[in-house]
Amino acid sequence: MSRARGRNRKYRVMVLGLAGAAVVAGGVAVTGAFAGQEGAPPDGRQAAAQVISCPSTDGRLPEIPAQARAEVDRELAGLEQQIAEANERLIRSQGEGGPNFVQNAILGPLEDKRGAVLDRIGQAIDREGGERPQGLDALDTCGLNEAP
């Protein structure tokens, strides 16, 4: 292997390592974006870290027929993945857009996706002879909370 190629490989490994560390850190230290404001606060204060939080399905689902269990579990995992992806987007988009950016670009689409997943959960339970859950549509709306 030539010297130049060896240096490029070391550089790629270093960059990938830093990128991986940033992703891991990003999952812990979430954005400081203010809802309804663009960029940092004008008085120089540090913005409060925020995360997206959504209502839980815990205790909201009826008895799930055994035939529907795998599909429902897959869909529930999808809900968790959606929240993780939305939080990553919140981090990456800090300071972008205007006052309604978070609502229009992150929370609105997340609500649509969650609604579709919750509907599929209801259909899976109903299709396998279970009692179709009522009120799942109330679980699709998410909001911003300060990070713990």
Score class of each variant (00 low, 15 high):
Ala70Gln: 08
Gly98Lys: 11
Ala105Ser: 10
Glu71Gly: 00
Arg92Trp: 08
Leu90Glu: 06
Gln82Trp: 04
Pro99Val: 12
Asn87Thr: 06
Glu80Tyr: 05
Arg120Val: 00
Gln123Lys: 09
Leu79Arg: 06
Leu90Thr: 04
Asn87Trp: 04
Gly122Val: 00
Glu71Val: 02
Arg120His: 10
Gly95His: 07
Leu76Arg: 15
Gly98His: 10
Arg92Leu: 15
Leu118Ser: 09
Ala66Leu: 07
Ala86Ser: 13
Gly95Thr: 05
Pro62Trp: 07
Glu85Ser: 12
Asp119Thr: 13
Lys113Val: 15
Leu79Phe: 08
Ala86Met: 05
Glu71Gln: 15
Ala70Pro: 00
Glu96Cys: 03
Val72Met: 06
Arg92Lys: 15
Glu96Met: 11
Ala77Tyr: 01
Glu63Ile: 03
Gln103Ala: 12
Ile91Asn: 12
Ile83Thr: 13
Gly98Asn: 14
Arg69Asn: 04
Asn100Leu: 13
Ile83Cys: 03
Ala77Ser: 11
Pro65Ser: 02
Gln81Thr: 12
Ile83His: 03
Arg92Glu: 11
Asn100Thr: 14
Leu107Met: 03
Arg120Gln: 10
Pro65Glu: 01
Arg69Leu: 09
Glu75Ile: 09
Ser93Gln: 08
Asn104Cys: 04
Gly78Pro: 02
Lys113Leu: 15
Gln82Glu: 14
Arg69Glu: 12
Gln82Phe: 09
Gln94Pro: 00
Pro99Leu: 09
Gly108Trp: 00
Asp73Val: 06
Ala84Asp: 13
Val117Tyr: 04
Ala86Gln: 06
Ile106Gly: 02
Val102Ser: 03
Pro99Phe: 09
Arg89Ser: 12
Arg120Lys: 12
Lys113Ser: 15
Gly108Ile: 01
Gly115Ser: 13
Val72Lys: 06
Ala70Gly: 00
Gly95Asn: 13
Glu96Asp: 14
Leu76Ile: 11
Gln81Phe: 03
Gln94Asn: 13
Gln94Ile: 03
Gly95Tyr: 05
Gln103Trp: 06
Asp119Val: 02
Ile121Phe: 09
Ala66Pro: 00
Arg74Lys: 13
Gly108Glu: 04
Gly122Cys: 01
Glu75Arg: 15
Gly98Glu: 13
Arg74Asn: 09
Ser93Gly: 10
Leu118Glu: 11
Ile83Pro: 00
Ile106Met: 03
Glu96Trp: 10
Asp112Arg: 13
Glu88Val: 08
Ile83Glu: 15
Gln123Ile: 03
Ala124Arg: 07
Glu85Ala: 15
Leu76Pro: 00
Ile83Lys: 08
Asp119Ile: 00
Glu63Leu: 12
Lys113Arg: 15
Ile121Thr: 08
Leu110Val: 11
Glu63Val: 13
Val102Tyr: 05
Ala77Asn: 06
Arg92Gly: 10
Glu75Met: 11
Leu76Asn: 07
Gly108Cys: 01
Glu96Phe: 11
Ala124Gly: 03
Ala86Trp: 04
Gly115Cys: 05
Arg74Glu: 12
Ser93Trp: 02
Phe101Thr: 00
Glu111Met: 14
Arg120Glu: 08
Arg92Phe: 12
Ala86Leu: 05
Glu88Trp: 06
Ala66Trp: 01
Val72Cys: 07
Ile91Met: 14
Arg74His: 11
Leu90Lys: 06
Gly115Pro: 02
Arg74Gly: 08
Gly115Asp: 05
Glu63Lys: 14
